[in-house]
Design a protein around this nucleic acid. Structure first.
Lengths: 227, 227
DNA sequence: GTCAGTTTAAAACGCTTGTTTGAATTTTGA
DNA sequence: TCAAAATTCAAACAAGCGTTTTAAACTGAC
């Protein structure tokens, strides 16, 4: 059974946005790919901007619900005790990686999302901020409970770094391939690679925030300062 | 002394590309910002694509020369002995962070570069691949010498993850600010934060490439830890 | 079969884009 | 000083954009 026009447009737009970017993808490309008339986009969505939002919302809402559900599951299991940092990372990034491994559309969407997160366009930034507000608040709280000694701002930065690594992990296999032969065929392997890296970064010792342009202590004592 | 038209165009284009992206920045915006005539871009550069390349080449060539110089300095100091991973990371990412801290143009350029690295446009991808080829080869070799037990591919991935973290560190302070109050005014602090995170991720234990979810034969049976 | 409501179709709209033109102006070199 | 070269300028170009319009083709309920 052929999906209806609206769905075909969403699918075609998603793929084209990944391949060419938001601006470079024209409505004519989209409607051609969806085998629909040019006017169909404005009929079903109202405008190109609204279509972009619809493309993102379709996947992103579900993705963040999954993230919160994963966090809920861990917290229920912990019965009030703080979670392990590894569990928090797993709940947030594991879900994303798994969605990125889904060949049925999720893959191309995640590549788009990672690239769009730093997009300067206003309406996208505000839209993403709204979509992410709740999930970030939840994970921020969970992390603060798990590691009360780590300053909130330090966590935000590390979370941000992790988002960057995730973004490149998902969207940048092509860029990586320019540097040498790599294999990104197995999502489980990518997942293991990224998780190892993320946990390592998250648990790194807190930086000595002195304006020290000179030598810093190369190694810290094995006290678990950061994580 | 007023810079000549060509330079004014490069400066204006760089700032506008950062603020609005490559596509969304029009030649009319650029020439207006440079106080030049619309035709000046095509006269001095030939086309908008050529202007984009010129904007990138002006900074990127110098940046990668600095990176290689930093690596040379460390290797001269080591007198043939392998470098410490920390030094390799410092040579590559430290230079970038320092350039990102430079208010005199370097800052805005680095925000642009980080965002562009995952750009899907063909001519940019091939251009960046050329510009990066030498420096990547050098750093890849240095890292392999330092940590011969870490598979090349694993290093490439971790390098890629680090690039993602760097990219977000530089270009994404605005995005981060949507999640909570952060302070990115002191580049030394950002440098310390990112370096700590990167080293932590780089030195993380190698992932057990056996997928935990289901039984799937790992590609390389390797149990040793990284770094 | 009829008819309202929904969806598709083809064509054109106004506008902006990068680029080109050809003349005016400034700069250069002997 | 003066012609030649380099640069700037205003204006126009064709092409492509997102959007709108108007009519035709469906769809399901009665």
């Amino acid at each position: 059974m052929e999906p209806d026009t609206r769905t075909r447009i969403l699918d075609a737009a998603e793929k084209l946005f990944v391949a060419h970017g938001l601006d470079a993808t024209t409505l004519r490309m989209i409607t051609a790919g969806a085998q629909a008339n040019l006017a169909a986009v404005n009929y079903h969505f109202g405008s190109k901007e609204a279509l972009i939002e619809a493309v993102f919302r379709r996947r992103l809402t579900w993705l963040n619900e999954q993230r919160i559900a994963a966090l809920d599951a861990f917290e229920a299991e912990a019965k009030g005790a703080p979670l392990k940092p590894r569990q928090i990372v797993e709940a947030f990034f594991g879900v994303a990686i798994r969605m990125a491994a889904d060949k049925g559309g999720g893959q191309s969407f995640m590549r788009l999302l990672g690239r769009t997160y730093t997009e300067p366009t206003d309406f996208i930034r505000t839209f993403l901020a709204e979509e992410y507000a709740e999930v970030i608040a939840r994970f921020n709280a969970a992390f603060f409970k798990a590691l009360p000694d780590v300053p909130q701002e330090e966590f935000l930065w590390r979370f941000h770094f992790m988002m960057g690594a995730l973004s490149y992990a998902i969207s940048g296999a092509d860029a990586l391939r320019l540097l040498g032969p790599v294999d990104d065929s197995d999502p489980d392997v990518l997942y293991a690679r990224l998780m190892s890296f993320l946990i390592g970064g998250l648990r790194a010792p807190l930086p000595a925030l002195l304006p020290a342009s000179q030598a810093k202590p190369a190694k810290k004592p094995r006290t678990r300062k950061a994580a």
